[in-house]
Each structure stands twice: as structure tokens, then as C-alpha cells.
Amino acid sequence: MSLTLDEIQKIARLARLRVTPEEATQLQSHFSGLFALVDELQAIDTEGVLPMSHAQDIALRLREDKVTETDRRDALQAVAPQVEKGLYLVPKVIE
């Protein structure tokens, strides 16, 4: 199967990425090769096989509901592009 250039742009929007028309063309050719390989999976009989999402069948651990973290806000915000009074600044979302 192959993706149309419009489909590639749509996926890019979903992934919050910009794709130039040249990049979209290259991606189209990459996807067509990759999905030709992927389509070979359809020939494998997986009737009744449980999907494997993880290497170990373990249940997620629970912990006591108590505060364990110390306040490291200043250190963690020191690496942010833009902060003010302990808040992350982003472009206005709600008018």
C-alpha cells in the first residue's frame, strides 16, 4: 500500500511536525518500501494469539499514597525555555 501526499501531511499535523513537499515525497517512497515489508506480516497466522505489549508479564506496582518528592521546582524550571514566577510561559491559548 502507499500513502498519498495528503495523508502524509495529515499524519505530520497529528504528530505536530512540519513536512516540506520535498520531504513528503521522500517519505512517500520510504513508506511504500517499509509497508511492502510490513504487509508480509499479514501472511502469518495469528488466530488466537494474544498481543504481546511487554517483554515481562508483570503487573504495575502500587505504592502507598504519601508524599515522597521534595520541591525541586527551581532546578527543574531552570532548563525551561520561558518561565515566570514559577510558571511555564506559552502563547495565549484562550482569549
Partner: peptide, 20 residues
């Protein structure tokens, strides 16, 4: 996403533009 750490574009028109 350019909010909490890492690169943020120099100019953008809105939040989505900033992400992209």
C-alpha cells in the same frame, strides 16, 4: 514540545505553531 525543556523556535504565531 518546547515548553518544559529543550529547543523552542524563536518565532511563532500560536501554541500549535510553536509545537510544530
Amino acid at each position: 514540545d518546547g515548553v518544559r525543556y529543550g529547543h523552542r523556535a524563536a518565532e511563532y504565531t500560536d501554541l500549535n505553531d510553536m509545537y510544530e
